[in-house]
């Protein structure tokens, strides 16, 4: 209590010139009296401590830091990202080298098993499986992240336009989005990917980004509409704030929460979809850039003799997807206003 009162008085002496001009102009003749009354009123309004304010994001982060589920998810994700970055330098073998080629016997031993120096063995071309798994994380990460980013960007643009402008623009955008959503997403991705003459990782990125656009657009539009009907937007409107400022300062930031959560969850889906497309041969055919889905696809002919060839990349996909999902779910919980206190 005392602290706050002192604070006020300190501040006012610093800028007392302003107050005096105020008085001199005669606009507020009873300013001194008023100030005295107000200081009495400070007591009426109840206390406010002197700490700087804590934003919603900061308080969400505080809660997240104590959430074991978030920590597990974050640890998996972080490990995955770090591995993906440093993998070319720590991989024991070059991914195109075929050190175990001489052990491959198409009839009796198509997939060489583990041995010293190659503790996961090799694939059917005699390339070191462990090295390829490590380096494969790179492509997987790039495809997942870039595709989700593109999808997010597209969805944000469409959703913002639809939610902010409303009317027939909203109807038009939403009908297009509905059409896109009505096609099964993987099927849509196949169609897009197979349009490309020379499949590459970018085909994957574009195909997956396109299937994510409608999801983000619809989600954002919905929460923009909720914001548009909210009291604080009405308050901004009644204050005479410019419409663009209302959209970008009030509606969008408050509508983004669920979209961010969805993006985290979508990363997992993107990685799985990318793997699925690669598996079906629609991804990057370049063997020098291994990718988990592609490896999974190439493991198919040997599934009975060497199931581990499929098991390792599949396991990697599952663990990474789980990491992102755990993070997304706990983020959703932390941002949910109902759990806020």
């Amino acid at each position: 209590m005392n602290d706050t009162t002192n604070h006020t008085t300190d501040d006012s002496t610093d800028h007392s010139t302003d107050d005096r001009t105020e008085d001199a102009r005669g606009a507020r003749p009873t300013f001194g009296q008023r100030r005295k009354d107000r200081i009495d009123q400070l007591a009426t309004a109840g206390t406010v401590d002197d700490e700087p304010g804590v934003s919603l994001i900061r308080s969400a982060w505080k809660r997240l830091r104590r959430n074991p589920i978030f920590l597990i998810g974050a640890a998996i994700t972080l490990a995955f990202i770090v591995l993906a970055i440093i993998s070319p330098w720590i991989a024991p073998w070059d991914v195109t080298a075929r050190p175990l080629l001489d052990k491959v016997r198409p009839q009796s031993n198509p997939v060489p098993g583990p041995e010293p120096g190659h503790f996961l063995g090799a694939d059917d071309r005699g390339r070191d499986l462990f090295s390829r798994l490590l380096v494969g994380s790179r492509q997987t990460l790039i495809v997942g992240v870039v595709a989700t980013l593109f999808g997010l960007l597209g969805g944000l643009t469409l959703g913002t336009i639809a939610g902010a402008v409303g009317g027939w623009v909203d109807s038009l955008v939403m009908r297009i989005v509905d059409v896109m959503l009505s096609i099964p997403s993987l099927l849509l991705a196949f169609t897009v990917a197979s349009l490309a003459r020379n499949p590459s990782q970018w085909t994957l990125v574009i195909a997956i980004a396109i299937i994510q656009v409608p999801i983000f657009a619809r989600l954002l539009r919905g929460s923009m509409l909720a914001q548009r009907a909210s009291d604080h937007v009405l308050a901004a409107r009644s204050l005479g704030v410019r419409p663009t400022a209302i959209v970008f300062r009030h509606m969008l930031p408050n509508a983004l929460g669920p979209v961010i959560v969805q993006a985290t969850l979508s990363l997992a889906v993107a990685i799985i979809d990318a793997a699925a497309l690669s598996f079906l041969g629609l991804g990057n055919p370049d063997q020098s850039q291994p990718e988990w889905g592609q490896m999974l696809g190439r493991a198919q002919p040997f599934i009975t003799e060497a199931p581990h060839l499929a098991f390792y990349p599949a396991g990697c996909i599952i663990v990474v997807a789980l990491g992102f999902t755990l993070m997304g779910e706990s983020l959703r919980e932390a941002l949910d206003p109902k759990t806020r206190r």
Binding site: E22, A45, V48, G53, V54, L56
Partner: peptide, 28 residues
């Protein structure tokens, strides 16, 4: 100066300026 005047006219301390709405009681 105007901000401080506004705060004092509704009976809130200047320290409240840096805070977020959820950190106040209903009356504040």
């Amino acid at each position: 100066a105007r901000l401080r005047e506004l705060m004092s006219s509704v009976g809130l301390p200047v320290a409240a300026l840096s805070k977020y709405p959820h950190e106040f009681s209903g009356g504040q």
